[in-house]
């Protein structure tokens, strides 16, 4: 019972492999909102999980998706480890690659 209240209260860290940036992600906070609050220029647009602009690839570690990514990402992307940063909370420290080339889907 106590474990339920204790879980996920420790901040995790996200490391951006291509830019050597490392920042803290608080519990119940998304990867994108944490990045933006640190002043990181993370590509984003809708912030509600529908455009896919903020997608990134998790190389190591685990995230908790707040939505079903399969509406926005295709199966190949999901299999390759892509997640939507605006709808991902961290379950562990992670290393990510950001696809900064794909800023606008539409």
């Amino acid at each position: 019972m106590l474990k339920i209240f204790k879980k996920n209260k420790i901040p995790k860290r996200a490391a951006l492999l291509q830019s050597n940036i490392n920042f803290e992600v608080l519990p119940r906070t998304t990867l994108l909102s944490s990045a933006l609050s640190k002043g990181i220029d993370w590509p984003h647009r809708c912030k509600v999980g529908s455009c896919g602009t903020c997608k990134c690839r998790v190389v190591s570690g685990e995230v908790k998706p707040n939505i079903d990514f399969s509406y926005t990402l295709n199966q190949e992307e999901i299999d390759a480890g892509f997640v939507l940063a605006c709808q991902s909370e961290l379950l562990s420290d992670i290393e990510v690659e950001i696809n900064i080339k794909n800023k606008e889907k539409k």
């Binding site: 809708c46 509600v48 999980g49 529908s50 455009c51 509406y71 926005t72 539409k106």
Partner: peptide, 10 residues
């Protein structure tokens, strides 16, 4: 609920 988030907001 789905259309609002995935269609209207986009």
């Amino acid at each position: 609920t789905y259309a609002h988030v995935y269609n209207h907001h986009l």
